[in-house]
Design a protein around this nucleic acid. Structure first.
Lengths: 139, 139
DNA sequence: TTTTAGTGTAATCATTATGGTTACATTAAA
DNA sequence: TTTAATGTAACCATAATGATTACACTAAAA
């Protein structure tokens, strides 16, 4: 799971915490501590998944959708096409006679998939709203 | 989670499936499809955690421990010092006044930790024995 | 006692992945 | 018509990864 996920969550939290306003990629980049091009790349994916709204032209930028607080992190991860556990290296070789050698690849694949399923279940329980509340001490 | 985990699991499964014999790093590397030095590096960690036994000198190598089939993948991951979800990039900056900017780092850290907890729970349920049985079609 | 075949471990190298930077076509407000 | 923004691609520097090489150490075998 790379930094795009952090950028996406941070941006969505920031927008949700200032839900009346709109911010351009430079303003978001400054708060996230990255560069505007990276922010735009991530926001473009969120926008395609309808998790944020973006406008174009002068004075444009990004803003929260109405249901932003209810958006969970699993949805965000899928929108930016990320999985918690990256594909593990598949050892062995399908063409070998040895059952261990030829079978370990798919075993590791399944294990990776299994971890991703439980990790996604966990991410489903974390919402942008819950993060906002925690950050703004509204527990 | 990098390839050392694959190497470790593959090696443990191979040794457990041939539990009467001992194999050197070249033999294991050939079955895993990697190089002997890499195998030795991983096996050395497993050995320190007493998950395999190794001998030295001429004719030496690695062999299964008696309880190998009951070893679970969480124990192996810990032995080689790996976590399923690598640290996610901590966005923001602790020294900023903005609560979102200064707080997101630890939020992402906690999320990463939460995913690792559930992923480790999953790995605990997968044992070397269960993988052997699957590969050798003893379901 | 010497030779030999192995482990343990570090150093180096090539390749890949990652993130930052720059550039520019496109868009829409002013 | 100008300006300020997004969307996206290309390029570069750096970091991470795995393969390779080397070698000190160890213990069996001759």
């Amino acid at each position: 799971m790379n930094a795009e996920f952090s950028v996406a969550v941070h941006a969505m939290v920031y927008l949700a915490a200032h839900c009346q306003a709109s911010f351009n990629s430079s303003e978001l980049a400054s708060n996230i501590c990255t560069n505007p091009a990276r922010v735009r790349k991530v926001m473009s994916k969120l926008c395609k998944a309808s998790l944020v709204v973006s406008t174009k032209g002068q004075g444009s930028g990004y803003a929260s959708i109405a249901e932003a607080r209810r958006t969970d992190l699993a949805v965000i991860a899928k929108a930016i096409d990320e999985v918690p556990v990256e594909d593990i290296w598949q050892s062995g070789d399908l063409d070998r006679d040895c059952l261990v050698c030829s079978g370990m690849g798919s075993v590791m694949d399944d294990i990776c998939h299994g971890m991703n399923l439980v990790a996604f279940d966990y991410l489903k329980k974390v919402t942008i709203g819950s993060i906002c509340d925690r950050l703004l001490q509204k527990r």
